[in-house]
Every structure is written in structure tokens, then in C-alpha cells.
Design a protein around this nucleic acid. Structure first.
Lengths: 255, 255
DNA sequence: CAGTGGTCTAGACCACTCA
DNA sequence: GAGTGGTCTAGACCACTGT
């Protein structure tokens, strides 16, 4: 008959919903606007709440939505471009180090894999510095910076008490070494409970895990494991701050 | 009384399950081994299947598990380190270009955001090259490479028919320009239907979206949007192939 | 307190893979 | 066709936020 080929490939409901909602976000909503609550939305689209939630989860993963328990679902602003490495990445300067805010510092043994990367014995003590990266008053990343005590010999004599002051000392001493460059890797992870708390997210929230190896003439001087909020961050490498491609734009397929 | 503080903070069941399963994976399972099916596992832990699945989803997101419909759930190998940029990223050579396998090439107008980044008019035609990055016989990434026709003037005269051959021509011409460097950004996304197909994933699967701007003396010569499988890939920058920190190792918290 | 998103249940059916 | 993971439902209760 005359019925036009309708969804014969049968995409899942939640996926179709995601597309519909995504288009609605583009045309009918402004950044920061709150959406109707999940029960209403589900009823409006004639699906179970769980299905509606599956669509919202997708959109949140893509950085389009922001959901807060007890508050509601709002339209998220475009992702922040976060400089992770500049073009001259061999530079001695601490890159965007001023953005990191030291919280505390303890001394302990490093996790096995970190010890391996540092090329030290697993029993050798390391300074563990806890830092967060704050932009516009919001924490974008939480980091653990592992610095072998042997890398910063000056410090052991000083004996600053634990806390932010000591964290700053360790970072200062590290910079004094004259770092020659960094190695980095980026992968997807989920926030541990402690990181989630710093980032104001729930445990298990998707994060981009940036592992950095700081190189000095003597070898690996320190290792940092930083977890960035995947929902709000776009990591940039090589002064690509100008890159302004957003996800909804990529949606359209050139054919 | 004598009851020892047991889970008073009440973490969600699925999160606790994730931890239990994660430890079980470390101690009792080998890479590639298949887990019991979801219904059995759920029964064994005394939870609903949906809850068990929430835990499995977490572990899959972290690259610990691999799930295939009709087959089962298996223990995933450690993530592959994928070189995205080398230390001398200003190099003219195509980096790990040999790993990219051209599929086809069409000519069309670029999406608005891509046109903006290329600094061209949205109506100007661009070559759209479709490539996939294959390692060990498995597709790790799918890419759309946008090259303005004005960037590669030689090509319009040649008139190679659409297809892999033409794709190769465009890439070759692009390299001939003498590229001066690249800008990159990395963010989390979900696979579009076409990308999902190339990557052997379901639509919506988590991917790392790498947007690269190729710079020539004249400005932005091309833009590429590559989607990497987030479950299997660890993107490395600056010859950090040696970085071997895996997620389960990060689990332990130094305190 | 009312209203929101987060968790959880116990089912059902479907799509896919493989023997 | 048997067995797997993927989708979907219609409820329930909880944790959190604001007023």
C-alpha cells in the first residue's frame, strides 16, 4: 500500500528517543533550562521511566544534559576546553599548573603499577599529593601525584606537616628538578568514591583518566593520575583551545 | 554492641557488586575466560538481573569486561595503547598514518562546525574521507577526514572515481602540502550508528572522540574527527607506549 | 514538606550466535 | 533450537534538594 517505510530497521526506543530529545534540545531549549521531570517525560513519550532514563543517560554522557538528584535535569553548556598539554610540551614550566589547587600530601608506598612506572621498588615511600583543578569555581579534575622521596631529597629534611602547605612544597621541589618533558595517556574510567566526591559526581561517573609521566634527566621523576569529569571536559592538546566542534554538530553525516 | 560498622554508608548494591566482581576478575579469572551468564550471576548474588547488569556495565566501561550478544561475557585483555601523537608532533610525517585504512571518499559540504574550524564557507565542497584504524585485525577507530577542495587543488583535475583509491589520493595530496603541526582535543562521546557498525559495537557505545586540526602554512588544511572504542583503547601522547598502568591497579588508594 | 533523580525488582520479549 | 546478552515494562522505595 502507501505506507512509507517507517523504521523498518527498528532501532531501539531509547536510541530513537535520544535523537528526538537531542533535536528538541537544539531547537526548543536554552542552556541552563530545566526539562520536565522524568515521570512526565516518560508519560509524554509513552515509554517506561527506565527507557526514558536510558535516553537521558546517553545525552548526559554526550555532555548535553546535566542531572542533579533532588533538583532536576538541565541543559548543559558546551564542554569546557581544558588544556592538558601545550605544543611545546617539553617545556620546563608547569604548563597550566596554576590551575591546580593542592589539598593535602601524605607519604606512603605507591600502588604496584605506579611504582613500576616510576621504576622504583614497591616498598619505597613516595609523596602522594592530592590536587584538584578548579575552573570557574567548579572542580573539573581530581589528581593523585606520586613523587618518590628520592626525587625530592631536599624535602625530607624540611619536615613540613601534612596538608596543603606540604603539598605545595612537594610540587615546588618537583618543578625545581628541571623537568624535561611528559608522557601522557588518556582513557575512559569511572570515578572512585573519593574522586567522585571531589568532582561533585556520583561514584561510577564517567571520567577521562589522564596518566602523566614526568621525565627528568635521571628518568621518571613523578607520575600523576588525573581524573577529569567526562561530562563537562574536552581535553585539548597543543593549544587547540580554539577548536569549537560540539557533538550535536558532528551528528550530521556528510554523504 | 559488638557489631562492626558494616557498610553504614550504604553504597548502592550495583557499586558493591562491581567491586566484588572486579576483585574476582583479578584473582579467579584469566583473560578471555567467559563468565557465567547474567541470569545465573544475578541469582548467585541474590539481585535482580538489571542490578547485576548495572555492575557489568561499569566494568565494561572500565575495559575489564567484553560482552557480546548471543555469545556471553568475557574477561577483556588490558587496553591497547594507541599512539595518537608523538613527542615531535610538529613533524611532517603522517605519524602513525600507516595504521589508517581508507575506505571511501565522497565530496560534499562540511557540517557547519567543521566548516567553521576549517575557516571556509559552509557551502564550499570538501572531500570527506572515511578511514578506519585497524590493529591486530580489529577496528579500533573510525574517522571522517574533511579536506577542503581548495586545500588539494591538484586533485580536482585528476577525477578519480569515488572509493578507496580516491580516498588514498586525497590523503596523499594532503601530506604533500607539508603540514606544520596538529591541534587535538579528546572528549567522550557515543558512537553514531555508522561508526558503531565499523567498530563492531552497538549504537551509543562509549567512544573517545579525537578532533584533529591539521595546520599548513596557509592555515587549517584539514580537520579529522576520529572515534576510538573507549572500551579497548588507551590513547597515548608523546611516545608513552611504555605506560602500563591499568585500572585495577589504580583502584588501591594510597592513604 | 513535596518533588526530584537514583536504585531496585521481577518479570517479559527480542535479536543474535552457534552447534 | 537452545542459550546468550539487549530492550522494555510497571511498579516500588530511597536519598537528596529546595522551600
Amino acid at each position: 500500500m502507501g505506507t512509507t517505510q517507517l523504521e523498518s530497521v527498528q532501532e531501539p526506543k531509547y536510541w530513537h528517543l535520544r535523537t528526538v530529545l537531542s533535536e528538541a534540545l537544539d531547537s526548543d531549549f536554552a542552556v541552563g533550562e530545566v526539562l520536565p521531570n522524568e515521570r512526565d517525560l516518560a508519560a509524554r513519550f509513552g515509554v517506561a521511566r527506565a527507557t526514558l532514563r536510558q535516553a537521558l543517560e546517553q545525552l548526559e554522557l554526550e555532555g548535553r544534559l546535566q542531572r542533579r538528584r533532588g533538583v532536576g535535569t538541565t541543559v548543559a553548556p558546551p564542554r569546557v576546553g581544558v588544556p592538558v598539554a601545550t605544543a611545546r610540551q617539553g617545556g620546563v614550566e608547569g604548563d597550566a599548573d596554576e590551575a591546580w589547587q593542592p589539598l593535602e600530601c601524605t607519604t606512603a608506598t605507591a600502588p604496584a603499577a605506579v611504582a613500576f612506572t616510576l621504576d622504583i621498588d614497591a616498598t619505597e615511600p613516595v609523596h602522594v599529593v592530592r590536587r584538584i583543578r578548579v575552573v570557574h569555581g567548579q572542580a573539573l579534575a581530581a589528581e593523585l601525584l606520586y613523587v618518590p622521596t628520592s626525587s625530592v631529597p631536599e624535602l625530607s629534611a624540611i619536615e613540613v606537616p601534612s596538608g596543603p602547605a606540604r603539598a605545595r612544597s612537594v610540587v615546588r621541589e618537583l618543578h625545581r628538578l628541571g623537568l624535561e618533558g611528559q608522557d601522557r595517556s588518556v582513557e575512559l574510567g569511572s570515578a572512585r568514591a573519593d574522586d567522585a566526591k571531589e568532582l561533585d559526581r556520583l561514584p561510577g561517573a564517567p571520567v577521562l583518566v589522564v596518566t602523566t609521566r614526568y621525565l627528568s634527566a635521571a628518568g621518571t621523576a613523578a607520575v600523576s593520575v588525573a581524573t577529569y569529569r567526562a561530562d563537562t571536559c574536552r581535553l585539548t592538546f597543543g593549544d587547540a583551545g580554539a577548536l569549537e566542534i560540539s557533538h550535536d554538530e558532528q551528528e550530521r553525516q556528510a554523504s
